[in-house]
């Protein structure tokens, strides 16, 4: 699955000689090159895994599996994308496999967080005399923590689409392939996830939060 995604990845602009040397060394079985690869990339890979799995232990397992997977496959890495892009896909895929194994990607209800309409299909939305600016919301550490915990309240099957599209910045087609769902389903889930998050963040967005 990951391989087929990479075939569609745009050609990397100007190969990085240092990166080529690193990959060649790993492919040749050099221990020091392998260690350099791990040390260079494990930090951000762990951050990605943690964002998706929301658990330190799971994230560490995920990163270990992803790196071992990468070592196994690096001989067939075609270098049409940057090494980082390739490792990112592998990490995301590994995290999704873990979520799937834990049944955390199964369909879960999100209806209570959906926008409401009256019997004539008119939206029911209390007036917004004030909409807080992004800056005033994210400037405080405690408020950012609250935003993170609200994102964590989204059902996983919606949260993961929001994370992959809005935060990890994957394309709709890539997310569809990774999750084995249609592109239109990705779009529906992304929209619902954002709507639900809007509902969860309302007090913050209205500038009412403590």
């Amino acid at each position: 699955m990951v391989e087929s995604l990479l075939k569609t990845a745009p050609a990397a602009e100007g190969r990085d000689a240092e990166e080529d040397e690193l990959i060649d060394g790993v492919v040749a079985g050099s221990e020091s090159h392998a260690e350099r690869l791990v040390r260079t990339h494990i930090g951000w890979m762990r951050a990605v895994a943690f964002r998706l799995l929301r658990d330190d232990g799971l994230a560490d397992d995920c990163v270990q599996e992803a790196l071992l997977n990468a070592f196994q496959k690096i001989g067939s890495f075609e270098r049409r994308s940057r090494l980082k892009t390739w490792l990112h896909r592998i990490t995301v895929n590994q995290a999704l496999m873990k979520l799937r194994a834990m049944k955390r990607l199964n369909e879960q209800p999100i209806d209570p967080l959906m926008p409401e309409f009256d019997e004539n299909a008119c939206r029911i939305e209390a007036p917004w005399p004030r909409l807080a600016s992004t800056e005033e919301i994210v400037e405080r550490e405690s408020v950012r923590a609250l935003v993170l915990s609200k994102i964590g309240e989204l059902p996983d099957n919606y949260r993961i689409v929001l994370m992959l599209r809005d935060i990890e910045e994957l394309e709709t087609a890539e997310v569809a392939e990774l999750l084995e769902i249609s592109e239109s389903n990705v779009k529906v889930r992304l929209h619902r996830a954002r709507s639900a998050l809007k509902k969860l963040l309302e007090p913050l967005l209205r500038g009412e939060a403590t």
């Binding site: 330190d56 939206r123 939305e125 909409l131 992004t134 919301i137 994210v138 954002r194 998050l197 967005l205």
Partner: peptide
């Protein structure tokens, strides 16, 4: 008015989500 307010808050939500994760402390 309802859809205008709703869309503004929806867009703000997306921005806030993105900005929140730009903060290194949001990572591990």
């Amino acid at each position: 008015r309802e859809c205008r307010d709703y869309l503004a808050a929806y867009r703000r939500t997306v921005e806030v989500g993105k900005k929140t994760f730009e903060d290194p402390a949001a990572a591990v």
